[in-house]
Amino acid sequence: MDRPLEPRDQSLSTSGARARRAVWSRQLRLWQLVLPATLFLVVYFVVPLGMLFYFSVRAPGVSGVTLVHFRKLLTDTFFLQTLGLSVRLSLEVTAVALVLGFPLAYLYTRLGPVWRLAILFVTLLPLLTSAVVRSFAWIVILGKHGLINTVFIGTGLTDGPVKLLFTLDGVRIALAQVQLPFMLLPLINAMEQLDPSLEHAAVSLGASQARAFFKVTVPLSAPGVVAGAILSFALTISAFITPVMVGGGSFNVMPTLIYQSAIVTLDWSTASTTALILLVVALAVVWGGMTLGRRFRYGPGSA
C-alpha cells in the first residue's frame, strides 16, 4: 500500500438499516433440500433391501444368522446351472451388442447432424419402449409364421420353419436388441471425447484407415467399451421380461428363479438368497469392469 492505513473505525453506523437485514445463518441451508429424497429412499429403498438381506440369513427354527440358504443353493446343481447360463447369456449378449454398437458409435462421431439425430432417435425409441412391447414384437418376428421364417422359407433358405421362439437363441437375439442402446450411449459419449485429428495423424503417418481405426480409435475408446459392457451385462443378467416372454419358460435364468420362488412357491428366503447372489455377481462384474476400465484411461484425469 502506498497510503497509510487509517485505524479501524468502530463507530461506523450499523443500526441505520437493520430492519432490512437478514443474517447469513438465517438463510435456508442449501443442503437441507436433499433431505426429503434421501429420507424417502432410506425408508423405501434401503429398508426393503435390508429386509431382503434379513430373509436370506434367517431360517425357521434357527436363532441368529444362518447361511443355510446360501449353502443349499450353492450346492444345488440346477441352481448352479441356471447361474452359469445367466452369466454366459449375459456375456454373449454383451459381446453381440458391442460388435454391432461399436461401428454405429464410430459412424455417429463422423457423420453430420441429421445422421446423428437419426441414430439417436433410433437408439432412444427402443430404450424407452416398454420391455413387454419389445418382447412381444420379437415373438411376432421369431414365431413360426413370423418375419424371419417368412423370409427364410420365401427365399428358399430353409424348407420348413426354423424354431427360434421359445429357444435360447431367440432370447439371445431379443436381449441383444434390448441391450444395444445401453451399449451405444456410453460408446458414443466416450468416442465424442476423442479428437478426430488423432486418426488423421495416424493416416498421415502412413497407417491405412483400418489400421488407424484399430490402433488408435479402438484402444482410446476402451473406457466407453468398459462402461457399455458393464451396463449391458448388469442389465442382461437381471433381465426378466424378455427371457420369460421370448423364452416361454423353456429354460430358467436367475430372475425367473427369483420370481418363481417369491410368487409361485412363496419361498421368500430362497427368493431373497437368489436375489442377493444375483446382486453379488452383478456387482462383482461392475467392480471388476471398473478396475479394468481404470487401466485403459490415458491422459489427464486418469487415476
Binding site: L12, S13, T14, G16, A17, R20, R21, A22, V23, W24, Q27
Partner: peptide
C-alpha cells in the same frame, strides 16, 4: 459509511 458485512 454503512457496514455491509451482514447485508444480503
Amino acid at each position: 459509511d454503512e457496514v455491509m458485512n451482514d447485508v444480503l
